[in-house]
Design a protein around this nucleic acid. Structure first.
Length: 264
DNA sequence: ATGGTGGAAAGTCCA
């Protein structure tokens, strides 16, 4: 079974490219982030024509997550327990969606960006990650043999070699010790980030900004990552980063990351 | 080749 994650940066503006890739890649499950569409406007029919059901969670033009599956879509849950709120009035955002697909509990996650270190959004990001660590630890505690995948756009580069120029990011978000500690805390809860073991190279990126020729210059970041529970980590036999999906007309600024999972 | 920001409740905010 193949499980993919992709920050699509608007499913409506990206629909043809996403469907084309889904058909070519033959993934069984696709977790999407930044769908930027409310639930009632999501293009379910287009996915249905390819044999995929889709669970969606979106309120507005911001954020939005979805999971498309052709191997079942059960126990759909919107938001994780304890997920912090944001805004005025405070509201829980559309950044986390869980569903069980082919025996794997998939969570499509869009971690808050953080904006600037001095911005309240940065503290929101850290609180969001701390709450996720608690929830994920509880899931594993309740069912130690569960196959759980925490996939998505983490908006954190765990290593200096996950960005094109550490000096550029000095004083900016995505690389601070507090963010990296919050990311590492998911591992303390019993999960393993599985993409690096399969793709250990340095300067292997999943995102390139639209500005400043970042992609032609290969100036990117590795921020789309996958934490797996022990049972799932043992079943992952390969990971690919679909770099070609950053090329051509009207790409997302992120590319898909695909897990090959050896499930019975 | 992969090309000089893009998306959206737009005229500003978010990334």
């Amino acid at each position: 079974m193949r499980v993919a994650t992709w920050n699509v940066n608007s499913i409506r503006s990206r629909l043809d490219r996403v469907l084309d890739w889904v058909a070519r890649s033959g993934v069984d499950v696709l977790a999407m982030q930044e769908t930027k569409v409310k639930d009632e406007a999501f293009p379910h029919e287009a996915f249905g024509a390819l044999g995929y059901e889709v669970a969606t969670f979106g309120f507005s033009q911001w954020n939005g997550v979805a999971i498309a599956s052709r191997v079942g879509l059960g126990d759909v849950v919107r938001t994780f327990p304890g997920q912090p709120a944001w805004g005025d009035p405070p509201a829980v955002e559309a950044r986390a969606l869980g569903a069980t697909c082919g025996g794997v509990r998939v969570w499509s996650l869009y971690v808050p960006n953080g904006r600037e270190i001095a911005d309240p959004h940065y503290e929101y990001k850290l609180a969001w990650l701390a709450a996720l660590r608690q929830a994920a630890g509880d899931w594993l505690h309740d069912e130690p043999t569960a196959k759980i995948a925490l996939v998505g756009d983490w908006n954190i580069a765990p290593l200096d070699t996950d960005v094109w120029d550490p000096a550029f990011f000095a004083g900016r978000t995505h690389v601070t010790p507090a963010e990296r500690d919050a990311f590492a805390a998911i591992a303390d809860a019993g999960f393993t980030e599985v993409s690096r073991a399969h793709l250990p190279g340095e300067h292997v990126y999943t995102y390139w900004d639209y500005q400043q020729l970042r992609f032609p210059r290969n100036e990117g970041m590795r921020i789309d990552l996958t934490y797996a529970s022990p049972a799932l980590a043992a079943a992952v036999t390969g990971v690919t980063i679909e770099r070609n999906e950053r090329k051509g007309a009207q790409p997302s600024d992120h590319v898909p990351v695909v897990l090959q999972v050896d499930v019975p």
